[in-house]
């Protein structure tokens, strides 16, 4: 992993840096890669604020004292090697650790809402935060339509017209409406893998979340489906704040406004080493470890 220990690591690092640099410098302005938006610090009110968040499972600490302010309506990528706690951080935002034995310390704020506050119910947090998982997981026993509106139904929405409208709107947002409008009653599992994943995105969007958590949403998809999802992510930031976990640096460079880099510390505990606009993180990382990771990993 560390280029210093590899005989030809330096040469390879140079080469990959050059590749990324050409990518970023293609149009003199990397607008096609990094959407020109104000830098992270200058963003309006952050949609999600994490302060000193530590996630541990029993004795094992997955990630330690991460502090992040995720700008509203921006796409933030969490990148890093596997096992460095990106997903743990993601799942801390919608309290998904509550049921799997994970412990979260520190504070997470969703707008003004203290996610782990004493009076906060996880259901209300999750109705404001959507999530898309690594592998497409539409409910196998439900139809396409029932999948899309399942979140609304869970939240107590009964009105048929509201369900129909919200379902259609969500499917349109996920660029799936034209494909499935005639087969809304079909089982969701009839769709292809990429379509299933977009259905899952639509399902999350139907609840009108403020934040959309995406946990390596393309890791089980082919390149074409991946491309469609990436385009979708860029468009979605108009409606929601997207937090994207990915181990693909190019993906982060392509779709993320901001990037947070997680690495394993010396004691095998994940930690946040760098956070800033994607262009800054990739082109002029402040930390030497980020530099090493970013350059060593691409290729």
């Amino acid at each position: 992993m560390n280029p210093v220990h590899e005989p030809d690591g330096a040469a390879r690092a140079d080469h990959t840096t050059a590749t990324l640099a050409t990518h970023l410098a293609q149009d003199a302005d990397p607008a096609h890669l990094v959407t020109p938006r104000p830098a992270a610090g200058a963003a309006p009110a952050p949609a999600v604020t994490l302060e000193d968040v530590t996630v541990s499972f029993g004795q094992h600490v997955a990630v330690r004292q991460a502090s992040l302010a995720l700008g509203a309506n921006r796409v933030t990528a969490l990148v890093g090697p596997s096992g460095c706690g990106k997903t743990s951080i993601l799942r801390a935002v919608n309290r998904l650790h509550d049921h799997t034995g994970g412990t979260v310390t520190g504070t997470v704020h969703l707008g003004d809402l203290d996610v782990y506050g004493a009076g906060t119910s996880p259901e209300l947090v999750r109705s404001r935060v959507g999530m898309v998982f690594q592998r497409p997981n539409p409910f196998p026993t439900m139809s396409v339509f029932d999948n899309v509106v399942s979140g609304l139904r869970f939240n107590g929405v009964r009105s048929k017209s509201l369900l129909a409208e919200a379902g259609e709107a969500a499917l349109r947002q996920a660029a799936l409406w034209d494909i499935v409008k005639d087969r809304l009653r079909d089982p969701a599992l009839r769709l292809s893998g990429g379509q299933q994943q977009r259905l899952c995105i639509a399902r999350a969007l139907a609840v009108e979340p403020e934040v959309l958590l995406m946990d390596e949403p393309c890791s089980s998809l082919d390149p074409v489906a991946t491309g469609k999802i990436e385009t979708l992510i860029s468009e979605l930031s108009a409606y929601v704040t997207v937090v994207l976990v990915t181990h693909n640096m190019f993906q982060a460079a392509r779709v993320a406004d901001d990037t947070a880099v997680f690495l394993l510390g010396d004691d095998r505990v994940g930690e946040l080493v760098e956070f800033g606009s994607t262009a800054d993180v990739f082109r002029s990382p402040k930390e030497p470890r980020t530099q090493a990771y970013v350059t060593g990993h691409i290729g």
């Binding site: 119910s121 259901e123 209300l124 109705s127 404001r128 609304l152 939240n155 107590g156 929405v157 509201l162 409208e165 919200a166 709107a169 609840v207 009108e208 409606y239």
Partner: peptide
């Protein structure tokens, strides 16, 4: 047509109101 922001309000409202009953 229903605007998205209005719908978001509606869903939030429903979610808050029904939570106690669901629980």
């Amino acid at each position: 047509p229903v605007t998205a922001s209005w719908r978001r309000e509606l869903v939030r409202q429903q979610a808050r109101r029904r939570l106690e009953r669901r629980r």
